[in-house]
Design a protein around this nucleic acid. Structure first.
Length: 140
DNA sequence: GCCAACGTTGGC
DNA sequence: GCCAACGTTGGC
């Protein structure tokens, strides 16, 4: 299983809204970056990801799961980009802020710390474990 | 609100 | 195909 990170401004789409969708989930539309697109194309149903609030909060707040693989994004007039569907699994008992992530040596190579502009990012298995631990979730 | 970093666009 | 100009993102 692979791990990912989905970034969203809470004003646009928040964790609370994602949770409200329940198991039906929601499509992750609006990605217009090719690296982010490549990441979504690599996703498989069952992959897990972190849900990150950018701008306001600047923290990882929850865990999501990919429930539908890559398909065309109908909101893209050029037809070049696609999206996946994700559903909320559980919140982090203790949200992990960007500040904390930057100060954790084991997360120094995380994309979130090094390339803050990429909206859909890969997360390594080691980073996944460390972040869960910081967030107050038990080991998987 | 500012601005650095990054991506994209379009003239040549 | 290069690269300057422009637009956007997102941390600060």
């Amino acid at each position: 299983m692979a791990y990912w990170l989905f970034k969203s401004e809470p004003d646009t789409w928040s964790w609370e809204q994602q949770v409200a969708r329940g198991d039906a989930g929601e499509h992750w539309n609006g990605v217009r970056n090719h690296v982010a697109k490549q990441n979504m194309m690599a996703m498989k149903v069952g992959d897990r990801g972190f849900f990150y609030h950018s701008n306001q909060g600047k923290a990882i707040v929850g865990i999501v799961e990919v429930i539908r693989p890559y398909y065309p994004d109908h909101t893209d007039p050029t037809g070049k980009f696609g999206m996946v569907d994700i559903k909320a699994i559980e919140p982090l008992p203790r949200p992990v802020t960007l500040e904390e992530a930057k100060h954790e040596p084991r997360l120094k190579d995380m994309v979130l710390v090094n390339n803050s502009r990429l909206s859909v990012q890969p997360v390594s298995a080691a980073e996944w474990r460390v972040m869960r631990e910081l967030g107050g979730l038990p080991a998987e």
